[in-house]
Amino acid sequence: MNIIDRYGIRDKVAAVFGQTVQQGENELRQEIAGLKQMLASVHNSANIDHRINQRLQERDATTAANEELSRLSADKPLYSEIPEKRMVAFINDAWDRLGATASKEAVFNLAYDMAVNADPDLRAKAAAAKPAAPKDTGKVDAAKRANSVNIPSTASGKARVLTEDEELAAVYDRNHKG
């Protein structure tokens, strides 16, 4: 029987002897042959090394993605309130808007803004969290006054040495005043 199975002629031999082999048995034999082939490839050390390397690369990629997500979401206080499924949808929308050449940070920022503005509750929280601009008019006026005053100065504190033209103009002005 092993020889008959090895050469795959069981159906023919059964037909010669007047027996019929059921269709389910043939499918089962094909599945067993496929499993034997798969087990043979698993025992190949090159395939094992490849699979290990593939798993390590997947783990490294996942770790890098998680670190980048942590970095990008660090200054986004409402990020934890956005459902992951919605954030993924907004990230896909942001990629579509900005194009494939956009940076990950730009895409994430746009997706975060879209997610916050799409939810009325988050939009209200974001508006409440924004610090109001200080209205210290005294400082503004003092800065304007200080900027408008033009005081010439020198590093040493001494008066600037006049040029010859300036000295002659000063002498001319003194003599022609009266």
Rank of each mutant, 00 (worst) to 15 (best):
N147I: 11
N150K: 13
I151K: 02
T163K: 05
V149Q: 08
T137G: 09
A155Y: 12
E164T: 01
K135G: 02
A159V: 00
T137H: 15
A159I: 01
G157Q: 05
T137K: 15
N150G: 00
A142Y: 10
A159Q: 00
A146I: 04
K139S: 06
A155C: 09
K135D: 13
A155M: 05
T163A: 04
D141E: 15
N147E: 07
G157E: 03
A133I: 10
I151N: 08
D141F: 08
V161I: 08
D165C: 04
D136S: 03
V149N: 12
A143S: 08
V149C: 03
V161P: 01
D141V: 11
V149R: 05
N150S: 06
V149M: 10
D165I: 03
G157C: 09
L162H: 04
T154I: 03
R145L: 15
K135S: 10
G138R: 04
A159R: 01
R160I: 02
T137Q: 15
K135T: 06
A142D: 15
A142C: 07
A143D: 13
P134M: 02
V161F: 05
N150C: 03
D165Q: 07
D141P: 05
A142F: 05
D136M: 07
S148N: 14
S153C: 01
S153I: 03
P134K: 08
A142W: 09
G138A: 14
A143Q: 09
A133E: 06
S156E: 09
S156H: 11
P134E: 09
S153D: 05
T163E: 01
P152C: 11
V149I: 08
V149L: 10
R145P: 15
S156P: 02
S156K: 05
R160G: 01
K144L: 15
S153M: 04
G138I: 06
T154N: 04
A159E: 03
G138D: 10
K158E: 07
I151V: 12
S156M: 08
T163S: 04
K158M: 08
S153N: 06
P134C: 02
N150M: 03
I151D: 14
D165V: 05
T154V: 00
K144G: 06
N147Q: 11
L162P: 00
S148R: 11
P134H: 07
T163R: 01
V161D: 07
P152L: 14
K158I: 02
A146T: 14
E164R: 04
S153P: 01
T163N: 01
A142H: 10
K144F: 13
K135E: 11
N147L: 05
S153A: 02
A143R: 06
P134S: 03
K139P: 03
S153E: 12
V149S: 11
A146G: 14
S156V: 01
T163W: 00
P134T: 09
